[in-house]
């Protein structure tokens, strides 16, 4: 559904700012019907890629096909296939729910009975349908997000692009939104590409792409990504992880180790050995260690491993 080839983008420099490369020769294919998550630390090029996909930015080089249509040569055909949910709300707060939806209908040439039919189809999954005459600024954050989604679905897109759609939602609203998204993905056979910082959101995806410095570092099924770190790992929290990490490395020669913020992380440990290793480390360095845990790796661990300690920005790293 999306075929990105050799995509590069450099923001032109100004007198005070040198040119900055945001994407460097990116290749990415999202198959029809795939639920893909695009993730990466701040400044990795996610937003640039997203803006290019929406047609709001022209890349320096490379091609993108959306459902077979060239996004730059035939933008109208490509745009007709996709629906976009931006991070900042694209609904008008001063208008009512139904006024916003009718306006969206007009943008896509829908009116009268056709609009009514499309609307019934697009909102059958949400409580929005009972609140047509309320002003958007009176809706809760979760419902406002659902309205964005309904708005997108009016044009019957084959591809949904979402830019961190759950930002600012409480956990319950976030879950409701994602559940709805997964249901729509299944029932309507949509292709979905969503950027996200929250790794719990990525666990249910078909594919997770990890971007850093404008390059694609990994693109795989979440389980396959987790398997890269083996089945168990050891996370040690301490005051001086650099020095402790160096000593552990010298003494125990772990297969994979990285230092991230206040943690020393030993990855890809044989499950039979993890407890023994833990005991030996505790024996030796107990006074320095604040806490220690054995756990199966999750996507966040994969992300830290792949993007490296320096790459994890304030929102990208664990809290």
């Amino acid at each position: 559904m999306i075929a990105i080839k050799a995509l590069s983008h450099t923001y032109p420099g100004t007198r005070r700012q040198p040119p900055r490369q945001a994407l460097a020769g990116l290749d990415l294919v999202v198959d029809p019907g795939c639920f893909a998550i695009l993730s990466g630390p701040n400044g990795s090029g996610k937003s640039t890629l997203f803006r290019i996909l929406c047609g709001l930015l022209r890349p320096s080089q490379g091609t993108i096909e959306i459902g077979g249509a060239d996004l730059f040569a035939d933008p109208t055909r490509a745009r007709a296939l996709m629906g976009v949910v931006f991070q900042s709300p694209a609904v008008d707060r001063h208008l009512s729910v139904i006024e916003n939806l009718r306006l969206q209908g007009a943008l896509y040439g829908l009116s009268g009975a056709e609009f009514d039919a499309r609307l019934a189809e697009a909102e059958n999954w949400t409580a929005i349908r009972e609140r047509h005459h309320e002003r958007v600024d009176t809706l809760s954050g979760g419902l406002a997000r659902q309205l964005e989604l309904v708005k997108c679905l009016l044009s019957r897109p084959r591809l949904l692009l979402l830019d961190e759609p759950t930002t600012g939602l409480d956990p319950a609203s976030r879950k409701a939104f994602l559940d709805a998204l997964h249901r729509l993905h299944k029932t309507m056979g949509l292709t979905i590409l969503m950027t996200s910082h929250i790794f719990a959101e990525a666990e249910d995806a078909d594919k997770v792409a990890i971007l850093k410095d404008g390059r694609l570092l990994a693109y795989d099924h979440p389980a396959a990504l987790r398997a890269r770190l083996g089945s168990e790992m050891l996370v040690i929290q301490c005051a001086d992880p650099q020095s402790l990490g160096a000593r552990i490395k010298a003494e125990f020669a772990p297969k994979m180790m990285c230092v991230h913020e206040a943690e020393v992380r030993l990855e890809e440990i044989e499950p039979s050995q993890s407890l023994a290793l833990l005991e030996r480390i505790l024996d030796r360095y107990r006074p320095e260690i604040a806490s220690v845990a054995i756990k199966p790796p999750d996507l966040e661990d994969v992300f830290i491993h792949i993007t490296g300690p320096a790459g994890a920005g304030p929102q990208g790293g664990p809290r």
């Binding site: 929406c54 996709m82 976009v84 943008l107 708005k151």
Partner: peptide, 14 residues
């Protein structure tokens, strides 16, 4: 522009 409404219009095939 700030509130995002315009982005929604710009990505529509209009």
């Amino acid at each position: 522009r700030d509130q995002g409404f315009l982005q929604g219009v710009l990505v529509a095939p209009v």
